[in-house]
């Protein structure tokens, strides 16, 4: 009478107020029993978003197979969500995250929610945690700890790219704060917000389990681990792998080992 699924059961979901339509993909858990916790996946931005999209889809899929209802969504001004790229702002995205949590709850019926963010998505998740009612835990996958440093990195990559691969206009001078980085617009509000971003200044949520997972050891991760560990139940995992948003991206790679480690942690902590 019932049949095995032969395709990923992903539900497209448009949510948010009409003036601010966001797009997400809802993954209904497969199998029994279903868990009491839902997961919202927060994407990174820019090039990282493009390169890790498939990985995020796999993560959502694996989590749903493990019994967690999962939603991943595009921030306003990105992907399939409404909004123009020049409207990008970290504040918006924090609100978007709150809307996504509501949407996950509406679609799945769960109460407690786990935020799983990759790169800036992880940073976003941590900064928004205090505003989330009934937050059950966090997964921070290679979070951006210092926004300033991140900006500097992007600027350097951008300059490198310009210098190596494109014909330079004669009057070209590299700007310390370009309006566009690697094809991705960065307006003043976003830039300012990123400059101010410092995860070491964000109070961690009390008593919640947090997974900090990385493939390359960075001192800022260790610092963040220390900071979070003071108040939350922190697990710091190092899973050697390539970093999908930077290595061999043309092959559509998915760091399955990291995804497996994340899902294993979720299964263990949220039994």
């Amino acid at each position: 009478m019932t049949s095995m699924p032969t395709h990923e059961p992903i539900e497209p979901a448009f949510f948010g107020p009409p003036s601010h339509r966001l797009f997400g993909c809802y993954h209904e858990p497969q199998g029994w029993p279903v868990r009491d916790y839902g997961i919202v996946i927060c994407y990174p931005i820019g090039q990282e978003y493009l390169r890790s999209h498939r990985a995020c889809q796999y993560l959502a899929s694996a989590a749903a197979r493990a019994g967690f209802p999962t939603l991943r969504f595009d921030y306003y001004g990105t992907g399939d969500s409404a909004g123009d790229p020049d409207e990008l702002a970290l504040e918006h995205w924090r609100n978007d995250l709150l809307l996504a949590v509501e949407e996950l709850r509406a679609r799945s019926g769960v109460g407690p929610v786990i935020l799983a963010g990759l790169r800036l998505g992880a940073s976003l998740a941590l900064t928004a945690a205090a505003q989330i009612d009934d937050l059950a835990g966090l997964v921070l996958w290679e979070p951006v700890v210092h926004g300033n440093a991140y900006l500097d990195e992007l600027v350097a990559l951008h300059d490198e790219a310009i210098l190596r691969y494109f014909v330079r206009p004669q009057d070209y001078t590299p700007s310390p704060r370009p309006a566009e980085l690697l094809g991705f617009p960065v307006g003043a509000p976003l830039r300012t917000a990123l400059e101010k971003l410092d995860l070491l200044a964000v109070p961690p949520p009390r008593a919640r389990p947090i997974l900090l997972i990385e493939s390359h050891s960075m001192p800022e991760h260790a610092a963040l681990a220390n900071h979070l560990g003071a108040r939350a139940r922190l697990t710091h995992e190092h899973v050697p792998s390539f970093t999908v948003w930077t290595d061999d991206v043309d092959k559509g790679l998915v760091p399955n080992q990291v995804i497996a480690a994340i899902v294993a942690w979720l299964e263990k902590v949220f039994a």
Binding site: E153, E160, H216, F242, T243, L253
Partner: peptide, 15 residues
């Protein structure tokens, strides 16, 4: 090469 200095060989697994 710039972002992952420790991975100079670029050896990663293929998906």
């Amino acid at each position: 090469r710039v972002v992952a200095p420790g991975d100079a060989d670029g050896k990663g697994e293929r998906s």
